[in-house]
């Protein structure tokens, strides 16, 4: 009997901790949603944030372009190598173009593109806003009668939401092109078959699915990364922690939502 009590205590303590963590998580999701909605509320309200949106779009898009080009190219090349190895076992090398293009357009383009944007731009959004919080720049904006949710949060969310689909489109084109080079030029797949199978097997449904994923991921990355920076503890350690957490939470969220969206678009 006396041995059972500590075990029970241990379970209760564990359940209590689990409950607290769950409540904190729900509270955080709610807080992030409220901040995002408040920011979006300024979308149609003056003053327009057009100039700041364009600046953010430029910083996000152009800043992430090189890493997207490199990732896209190598993803396409590896897919072509792996795909050729598998398809050759069934004598279906001609399907290589369709395989590479479908994998990239439906899945790898949006997901890997999102990961690259999280690493390259998402983390810097969190760090930038976190530092603005630590150095009281957000308070300074408020005191100058400028709403940080409209000026800082909103342009970053919208810019991420619009930049990611464009970057994913670049990723897709480069990936398919690199797959063609490896498949056709290096491995000797018939170029006509590569292109013909690819154009025959890809439908608008596949392309739209990729677009929708990219828009949803972009919105999520913008919301999560801005919220993490906005609510970062006002210390250098707090900003570092928030940046790491933003990358982890955004990446995991992308994978979870990717599964949900894929199940809808299949």
């Amino acid at each position: 009997m006396s041995a059972a009590i500590p075990v029970q205590h241990g379970i209760w303590r564990w359940l209590g901790a689990l409950g607290r963590r769950s409540l904190q998580a729900v509270q955080s999701v709610g807080d992030a949603a409220v901040l995002t909605l408040q920011a979006l509320g300024h979308l149609l309200r003056k003053p327009w944030q057009g100039r700041h949106f364009v600046l953010q779009l430029h910083a996000l898009g152009v800043g992430s372009l090189v890493i997207i080009l490199i990732t896209g190219a190598f993803t396409g090349m590896v897919l072509a190598l792996q795909g050729y190895y598998t398809l050759a076992k069934f004598g279906s090398e001609s399907l290589l173009g369709a395989g590479v293009a479908l994998s990239i357009i439906r899945e790898l383009g949006p997901v890997l593109g999102a990961f690259m944007v999280i690493g390259r731009a998402g983390s810097s959004i969190t760090a930038e806003i976190g530092i603005m919080r630590v150095t009281e720049q957000l308070d300074a904006l408020r005191m100058m009668a400028v709403n940080p949710r409209a000026r800082i949060i909103l342009p970053r969310i919208i810019a991420t939401m619009l930049a990611l689909p464009l970057l994913v489109a670049v990723f897709d084109v480069i990936g398919i092109g690199a797959g063609y080079v490896v498949g056709v030029e290096l491995l000797g797949v018939n170029p006509g078959a590569y292109i013909a199978e690819m154009t025959a097997k890809i439908t608008m449904h596949d392309i739209n699915g990729g677009w929708v994923k990219a828009i949803v991921f972009g919105f999520m990355i913008g919301s999560i990364c801005t919220w993490m920076g906005y609510r970062a503890e006002p210390s250098t350690e707090g900003v570092a922690r928030a940046t790491t957490r933003a990358v982890v939470v955004a990446s995991v969220s992308v994978l979870i939502v990717d599964y949900i969206l894929t199940s809808f678009f299949l």
Partner: peptide, 11 residues
């Protein structure tokens, strides 16, 4: 207007 402890100039 407000002058903050660490100036809070926009970086």
């Amino acid at each position: 207007g407000m002058v903050f402890q660490y100036s809070a100039l926009l970086n």
